[in-house]
Design a protein around this nucleic acid. Sequence first.
DNA 1: CTGAAAGCGCTTACAG
DNA 2: CTGAAAGCGCTTACAG
Lengths: 337, 337
Amino acid sequence: VTHRRRATINDVASQAGVSPTTVSHVLSMRRPVAESTRKKVLDVIDELGYQPHGLARSLRMRQTNTVALIIPDITNPFYPVAARGLQDVLTDQRYTATVCNTDGVRQQELAFLEQMVARPVDGIVFVGFEITPEDLRPATRAGIPLVLVGPQFSPEIADVVGTDDRVGTAEATRYLLDKGIDRIGFIGLHTGGVGPSRTRVDGYEDALIQRGISLQPELVAPIGNYTREEGAQGMRRLLGLPEPPRAVVCVNDLVAIGALGVARECGFKVPEDVAIVGFDDIEAASLVDPPLTTVANPAYSLGQAAGRLLLSRLTSSYEGDYRRIVLPCHLVARDSA
Amino acid sequence: VTHRRRATINDVASQAGVSPTTVSHVLSMRRPVAESTRKKVLDVIDELGYQPHGLARSLRMRQTNTVALIIPDITNPFYPVAARGLQDVLTDQRYTATVCNTDGVRQQELAFLEQMVARPVDGIVFVGFEITPEDLRPATRAGIPLVLVGPQFSPEIADVVGTDDRVGTAEATRYLLDKGIDRIGFIGLHTGGVGPSRTRVDGYEDALIQRGISLQPELVAPIGNYTREEGAQGMRRLLGLPEPPRAVVCVNDLVAIGALGVARECGFKVPEDVAIVGFDDIEAASLVDPPLTTVANPAYSLGQAAGRLLLSRLTSSYEGDYRRIVLPCHLVARDSA
DNA sequence: CTGAAAGCGCTTACAG
DNA sequence: CTGAAAGCGCTTACAG
């Protein structure tokens, strides 16, 4: 346990016989320093193992090089990929990300937002389910750039990135209709706030309406979380209907995989008796039996895009209008539908 | 874009007609404040929307409430679960985690370690592949508590948590031997540093030796990364042998899933022609076809344990010897072996 | 080419 | 019950 006090810039200065000002400048190179003193200072820095204290520098420079990533749950396989996209972009500019899991619970979303604003971080990437523009006030008031992730947001109060999932689910639904199936269900209308499920349900409805098929409310199964368990539950409800659907569009792959399990348990053959399509194309989608037909969601690119939007305001000092980036998604036809 | 300057403790103080000292104390409750002034201060705080500046507080209190999680890749499904375990423990004590992806590259591991020490963070959870005790000097010198994750570490320089995977792979190997298979391969000896693969190979060898079966070096396929692709490659090599193995133990599930795909491509039936067992029991393991026999790795508990070890030094000011927590793992028999 | 001093926004001995 | 002042470790006008 041999830790002596960490060396400060003053230690370096006195040992090198110069002022802290000069030490600071040899490090930042923001003004010329005589070669001889520069060398001397560098030697002492090396000898003492001096490293500038990041916090002190941040306080002074009003810049922390830290960004918050607020998501529902890193354990949901969509987010690690998005997080990686974000981090790869941030790392290039020496920014790091603090990740917060909210479980999509409004109270937690608000708490983390406030905590991150208080710290403060330089920017926030927010994947919020229950959040409304009003809730973002703390961040905007503090002048902290924000990127909202989700197709349901409009760029009124922050930059926005999202997937064009309304078109995506519509495409998936049309794919089913084209197979001659017209009794199609949907699992995953979020019982809580608005959430991204709204746009996906919309796409599903778009396709049906476009083909002149009347919407049947009982074919839409709401769930509280986007997990296998809830997907299974939703599927049980749908299959328990007097006249069960012949195909089901799911709000995401996890839910679809849950539904898949239940279908088989209940003796339904997939896709013959009931076809299933997911959303996201997580790694597991291609691994289940049968491999899942799904809509590929460009998670990594989404994370990158969010990072770039943020960095444009942090490092390129962009101050223009809020922007909206909508990434296309596309159907990946496999065997479950 | 209506952000006025963030209110400081001085703003509150002057507006409330008291000293910053008093404002600080009504917030920290570390000394009594007259009820009337307390109320007055609270009102002003509310009015101005004042929130203490976390950085300033951290600098003064020498405590940042931030922990670094340094891992190879959040995209590898083992880590999100471990990260969640860690974060759930941290959140209770108002700590947050910054996550760093090193891709298991030594240079990156060192760079992030240094960066986090410089910040500084209060503690570090390190899942290092290429790291040696020497490399941790920057952290220990700075007196920053460290938790090393991996079965290959001994608690000489930091607290350690790991899975008993030597015993786990031995159990898996014995399971195959008990099925009458004695030509068994191993995919995933890491070509780079020591890494956790060493202990898993050891377990595999333990079981063979125990049964008096001689080790065949050509049956051990080294790979550079623990991915599906590399797993596939390793399997191709093994199946290309003049006398291919009848079963394969894989360093983790991703590798096993890669191997599974290749086996089928090459016309081998699993488990009849070649049995496959993985390690970790990630979510996808139960979803592939056939469902993977694997060794369950308690990722979430591992993350929790790491968090608790860290917090014991950060909040309970434990200063005793370094501890080592080894969590048991167990075989989950499914259909691939 | 270099330094003294102020200040980022807090907390906490010290004093009354 | 309360406040003035020092200090956490930096950076940066300002001055010479």
